[in-house]
Design a protein around this nucleic acid. Sequence first.
RNA 1: GGGGCGGUAGUUCAAUUGGUUAGAGCACCGGCCUGUCACGCCGGAAGUUGCGGGUUCGAGUCCCGUCCGCCCCGCCA
Length: 612
Amino acid sequence: MNPGDSHAPGRADVSIDSLQGLRRSHACGAIAASLIGQEVVVAGWVHGRRDHGGVIFIDLRDREGLVQAVFRPEVDAAAHARGGDLRSEFVVAVRGTVERRSPETVNPKLPTGELEVVARELRILNTATPPPFPIDDDPGVDELVRLRHRLHDLRRAPLQRALRVRHALYQSARTTLSELGFLEVETPILAKATPEGARDFLVPSRLQPGDFYALPQSPQIMKQLLMIGGVERYFQIARCFRDEDLRADRQLEFTQIDLELSFADVEDVLAVLEEVTVRAWREAGGVELPRPFPRLRYAEAMARYGSDKPDVRVLLELVELTDLFRASEFRAFRGAVDKGGIVKCLPIHDADALTRGEIDRLEAFVKKELGGKGLAWVRVTADGSWQSPIAKFLSDAERAGITERTGARPGTLLFFAADEFAKANAILGRLRTDLGRQLGRVDGRAWAPLLVLEFPLFERDEQGRVAFMHMPFVAPVDEDLPLLEAQPERARGTHYDVVMNGLELGSGSLRNHRSDVQRRIFELLGYSKQEMETRFGFLLNALDAGAPPHGGFAFGLDRIAMLLSGAESLRDVIAFPKTQRGQDLLMDAPSAVEPGQLEELQLRVAPSPKPR
RNA sequence: GGGGCGGUAGUUCAAUUGGUUAGAGCACCGGCCUGUCACGCCGGAAGUUGCGGGUUCGAGUCCCGUCCGCCCCGCCA
């Protein structure tokens, strides 16, 4: 049952007026002292009402703000009488005079609090069911309720602000890239699967029964084709679709500022990225970022921060210890090294604030949430002795080596991770940011942009096979071309990321414009000639048709909007987001379709093993 | 696929060890009220305790299953 369904007799009785003949003259939030004495027409939603019987106040809300309207019988009896019918969220227009409130009735909490509109005419443009929650900055309700009642949620100021930030981002990207000579081009939504690595959304074809379009995971291939097609500089505010599990910062469909340019090297692209980022922060956030952005090579980022998208505001850094344990007696560390893993340490000086209980909690967190085997630690006490569950396994030389590398001194707490490269770095990298923020070991900057460069082209998958790190189209660094077959994992790609405060804003690379290089990479990835032709024949042919050197980038627009509006979830910067299970609770999607529709598509739904 | 937290009136919460007719604030409805802005006062209505099953004399409470929301791992940039 919806609120108001059965107990709103007054609502059905309220007659509805036309707006005809009345034109809104000012936004509610635009009522200012300069208008005192003037007649205005304001329109919006009834945010609240205070009916004193004789005099009635309403707060009228539109997207620009709130203003109080007053209905007094002696000013206009008819307006006052109708004012008594008003309820929350009714849609109204009020014609009246702007007046200054008497000093004792000023509301200092409202920007318009010194003024009010004394009503001479009230038009009720629509009634409304009672809102399911207050239209306030913090409505204090479960997100389930907000998502189900998204219309009311959208009326709240934080969401309105987020949509404005998004709008400013669209505008900023469009003007910036247009000025830089980029052409906005739309690419198909009904497209073909691209090898981004994620699961595709499929759309059945009625005209080609049994065949499917794939919604683009990104316009990657299409923008490369545009380069070959002579567009030279392309951009698009592009919707992308990836059928993977959702997170606070992941939605099934999301928006990229996608761009690609020809006859460009890495520096040319980075210059564009910096410009787009700086202008976005300036125009959508009112923030001036320092230029040029600091740069970090991937290898250094991983070594020092344990992350390829470090929050460099956190001052703690990791220390490499692997070589100290190659011949160690300490099996936990030696074993990791023998298996090709690494040993690293996160030293925290003056760490008395971290209690034993806290350390135990961290160890449990590492084991449970991050999949670590454990969390070795050492506390250097005031007399220089080592308090630690592992100290007895370490030789004097190892202890000396650790002390030297980490600068350990009385008061230092050392955390160790001995594991595969990725996992050890993930664990310590996470502790670095969590503990650094918790202990205030930060440099105080609000914004820390960073360019991360020279990612490896490949990594090894679980079976030890060569797998691409980002996509198969990333061009290798020229000098590393000879390494491709001999030592593929040492070959650097031209891939680059823009990172802000530990969040990846987006990534890009130069692409393979030579079909021979592209073919070598496909071969390394294990594609047969046959597969190459069926899956990528059109691309290889396109490269042979005179592809210019090109490269590009894609910004995650939703994430930028999230950062700039201070939201903690993508759901708060997307008008109609989906839940963690991929549902739209407002429109109820996905939903069943008519049998006839399936028939037309020649589709049949297999019986579910579990009846629904 | 896995781990965790949660689901009681429109909403936010409460309900002793399993024990009477499941309560309260806000919102809502009716009445009164000429300076409120969290208006006030009086009265009222409002529940499939997410859903299904089980244990029990008795279930919001215990057990099993299931659905839904959120966070995290896997997955995904």
